[in-house]
C-alpha cells in the first residue's frame, strides 16, 4: 500500500507514491536522491538528519514522509543560492566548525533555526540550541565560534 505525496524540496516540487511507514529521512535520501541529511541514529538523538519543514528544524528520522505531504522541506543542499554559500556555511568553513563533516548538514540547519529566531545568541544560547545535534569530532568549540561569526556577518 503506497500513498501519493507532494513535497517541495529546496524549492522544487516532487511527487511520489510512498509507503506510509517510510521515514522522511529515507524519503529524502533514497527516493528524492539527496545526500545532505545523514542518518546517524534513527532515534532522534544525534540530529544528523536535521532539515527544515515549513521553516522549523525537524529531525527527519522522527517524521514519516507522508507527514510531509504538502509541505516545504529545506535541506543543506538548498541553503546556498546561485553558488553563493549561506553565511552559516561560510562561517563553518572559516572557523573550522567541522572535521569529518557527517554532523555538519544537520548542525547547520539547527543553527539556521537558532539565528532565524535569535540573531545574536550568546555562548550558552548557542550551546543550548545545538544540544540536540551530536558532533564527535570538534568538541563543539569551533562550532560555537562559527555560529558567533555567522551571527555577526548576518547582522552586518
Amino acid at each position: 500500500m503506497t500513498q501519493p505525496i507532494r513535497v517541495t524540496i529546496n524549492g522544487t516540487a516532487h511527487q511520489h507514491s510512498v509507503e506510509p511507514r517510510l521515514l522522511l529521512i529515507h524519503y529524502l535520501r533514497d527516493v528524492a536522491g539527496l545526500t545532505g541529511p545523514h542518518v546517524g541514529c534513527e532515534t532522534s538523538i544525534c540530529g544528523a538528519c536535521t532539515v527544515m519543514v515549513d521553516g522549523k528544524a525537524v529531525k527527519a528520522c522522527t517524521m514519516f514522509a507522508v507527514q510531509a505531504d504538502g509541505r516545504e522541506v529545506l535541506t543543506i543542499e538548498g541553503l546556498a543560492s546561485n553558488g553563493v554559500l549561506h553565511p552559516i556555511q561560510e562561517a563553518f568553513w572559516n572557523e573550522h566548525g567541522l572535521q569529518c563533516g557527517y554532523c555538519t548538514p544537520g548542525m547547520i540547519m539547527a543553527v539556521k533555526q537558532l539565528l532565524d529566531r535569535n540573531p545574536n545568541p550568546d555562548e550558552a544560547g548557542i550551546r543550548h540550541a545545538i544540544e540536540g545535534n551530536l558532533c564527535r569530532c570538534t568538541g563543539y568549540q569551533h562550532i560555537v565560534n562559527a555560529v558567533k561569526a555567522a551571527a555577526k556577518s548576518m547582522g552586518a
Partner: peptide, 23 residues
C-alpha cells in the same frame, strides 16, 4: 598558517559522498 580546509566545500553543502550516498 590557519588555512581554511580544502575538504570543507563539499561537506558544508551536503554534496560529499559517504558510503550510504552510493547508489
Amino acid at each position: 598558517q590557519s588555512v581554511r580546509r580544502k575538504e570543507d566545500p563539499r561537506l558544508i553543502t551536503g554534496t560529499a559522498t559517504y558510503v550510504d550516498d552510493i547508489q
